[in-house]
């Protein structure tokens, strides 16, 4: 049998594989275009002043400092609400939950929660936190809304991390007369926490870039001061970008500021991602010794 490079079968394959390479190429191209556009046009405006001062002259000049601070605050709040509850739920599912209808209901709820549109979380935040709990539009209401939105991600990431701890650690300690909680606390959690943290940080990076849930629960168009308490409104990077690119009265004039904001937002999100990767690496190294 002779190998024929010109058979139809072979040509089909060559063509087909090139098509697949083309698809991958398009995906990479999209990423390059996105980054190139934002970096090339946003880099020029980034300065110490841009990062550390508030907007001036009807937001046509000045920096984005309050938006950076606001995003930082709301992300910290999100963490406080989402991480402990998410880890607790993951511990229940992976360590305690029996194989029952109720457990399946819990798992189904998690998957559905992660599918609920972010704007619907915004509506929920308005109905529950702003109105029913009477918090008003403020940092706390936004943090709670984002906390709930990130909950399914935190749970999934934490459970993944718990699953990666070998069964023998649990069996070993139980066989020594440890209670289940002792076994989890001393012999499961210490090894799962690195993975939990990394997964969680990845989720928070996504939360930091979200706009729809904070639109009506606490984010402000413009504030001349920084938020001082949980009941203050705040400026946020994603919302600021939205305003600067669609709602501002002199859109073309402030376009550079919009690009700068987009750049800062993207860099922030990727710093968070990067820190997750570094953290994972560091903690792994520590626990191996």
């Amino acid at each position: 049998m002779k190998y024929s490079p010109f058979s139809i079968k072979h040509l089909q394959q060559t063509f087909g594989f090139h098509f697949l390479r083309f698809c991958m190429g398009v995906v990479i191209l999209i990423l390059i275009v996105v980054f190139h556009d934002i970096f090339s046009k946003g880099f020029g405006i980034i300065s110490w002043e841009f990062l550390t001062t508030a907007p001036r002259k009807g937001m046509t000049e000045g920096g984005i400092y309050p938006a950076i601070v606001g995003t930082f605050y709301v992300t910290v709040l999100t963490t406080i609400f989402s991480v402990p509850l998410g880890m607790g739920c993951a511990i229940y599912l992976n360590e305690y939950a029996p194989d029952s209808k109720l457990t399946r209901l819990i798992r189904m709820s998690i998957r559905n929660l992660s599918g609920v549109p972010s704007i619907v979380y915004g509506l929920f935040g308005v109905a529950l936190f702003v109105e029913l709990f009477n918090l008003g539009t403020c940092l706390l209401a936004s943090g709670l809304t984002l906390g709930l939105m990130t909950l399914p991600w935190t749970i999934t990431a934490s459970e993944e991390a718990l699953k990666s701890v070998p069964r023998s650690y649990r069996e070993g300690s139980l066989a020594l007369g440890a209670t289940q909680w002792q076994s989890i606390r001393t012999n499961v959690l210490p090894y799962a926490v690195p993975g939990m943290l990394t997964g969680t940080i990845l989720g928070l990076a996504r939360a930091a870039g979200e706009t729809a849930p904070i639109l009506f629960t606490g984010a402000a168009f413009y504030l001349p001061f920084l938020p001082e308490s949980l009941s203050d409104q705040f400026m946020a990077l994603p919302y600021h970008l939205y305003i600067m690119s669609t709602q501002h009265h002199a859109i073309m004039q402030v376009r550079p500021i919009a690009y700068g904001t987009a750049l800062v937002l993207i860099v922030l999100v990727f710093l968070l991602n990067l820190s997750a990767v570094v953290l994972r690496y560091q903690l792994r190294k520590r626990y191996r010794e």
């Binding site: 995906v27 556009d37 870039g209 987009a262």
Partner: peptide
Amino acid sequence: IVEILAGIPSVVIGFLGIV
């Protein structure tokens, strides 16, 4: 690379839609 694409905030994508 695919994961990085997933990490870009939707508001940034929307902004690129405009510009």
